[in-house]
Design a binder for these strands. Structure first.
Lengths: 116, 116
DNA sequence: AAGTAAGTTTGATGTGCGTCAAACAATAGA
DNA sequence: TCTATTGTTTGACGCACATCAAACTTACTT
C-alpha cells in the first residue's frame, strides 16, 4: 500500500538532538564489534530493515539486536523510523558531520578491510 | 642525571605492533570519559609524566590511572617509556595515522570544546 | 643500608553490559 | 476476528569494567 518505497512516513523513534550528541557516547557505542559491524551495514545500505540475516547478525537473538540498535540510536549515531511493523534505520550522516566534522568519514574509511 | 631531557632512554613497555592495532579496541578505549580526557592531555603535551594532578585526574587513585594508561597502551593509542621511576607517555601519532588515516585528527578536532 | 618516591599488580566491590528467553505490543494478512 | 510477523521490553545470568586499598617492585636519595 501507499507507494513502493518508504520515503518520509513512519514515526521517528526518540533520539538526541544534534547539539546533544556526545563524543564519548558515540565512541562507547562503537567500541563493540557488533555495533561497529552495524555501522558498516548502515553506511552501505541507505536504510535497512532490521533484525534479520541480512544485517549479518543472524547469530544473535532479535532482542540483542534491538538492544544494540537502541544504544546506537541513543548515542545519536542512527535514526530509526517505525513504519508499519518494520523499522528503517539510517546513519545520521549530516548531523554527525555537523557535530564532529570528518569523524564519520574517517571512521568508515578506517573500517574498510577491518575484521570484526 | 644523564642529560636534562629524556629523548630515547628508558625501556618501552609492551605495546601492540602497528598492524595489530584494532579499531574496535581503540574505540572502546576512548569510550570512557577519563581516557578521552587523557587522550586530550597526551595530544597537547608531547609527552607527560604520569599519576599527578597535572594530568587532571587528581580525583582518581593512582592505581586507577595506571589501569587506564594500560588500556590505552594495549589498545595501541599510547607509547610508554619507563625511565628511572617515571613513565613518559606519548600518543602513537604516526602509527595511528598509518593504520587509520585521518582518524586521530578527526577525533582530536571533535574533542575540542567537548565536555567530559 | 635505610628510607622514600613512583607505578604496577592483586584483590575486593559495585555497577554496567552483552546475551538469551519469555512475555508483550502493534500491525499485516487470512 | 484469528493468526502470524516484527520488534520491544523485562528479567535473569555471567562477564567485564571502573574504582579503591593494600602489598609489592624498582629506583633515586641520603
Amino acid at each position: 500500500m501507499v507507494k513502493g518505497a518508504h520515503e518520509d512516513e513512519g514515526v521517528l523513534l526518540e533520539q538526541p538532538d544534534v547539539e546533544d550528541i556526545q563524543l564519548v557516547k558515540v565512541l562507547h557505542a562503537l567500541g563493540d564489534p557488533t555495533r561497529l559491524h552495524l555501522l558498516r551495514v548502515y553506511a552501505s545500505g541507505e536504510q535497512c530493515d532490521c533484525s534479520s540475516e541480512r544485517l549479518g547478525v543472524g547469530h544473535l537473538h532479535k532482542s540483542t539486536v534491538s538492544h544494540h540498535m537502541r544504544i546506537m540510536r541513543e548515542a545519536g549515531l542512527t535514526s530509526t523510523r517505525s513504519v508499519g511493523r518494520n523499522r528503517y534505520v539510517q546513519l545520521r550522516r549530516a548531523d554527525l558531520d555537523t557535530r564532529f566534522p570528518g569523524l564519520l568519514d574517517a571512521l568508515l574509511k578506517s573500517l574498510e578491510g577491518e575484521e570484526l
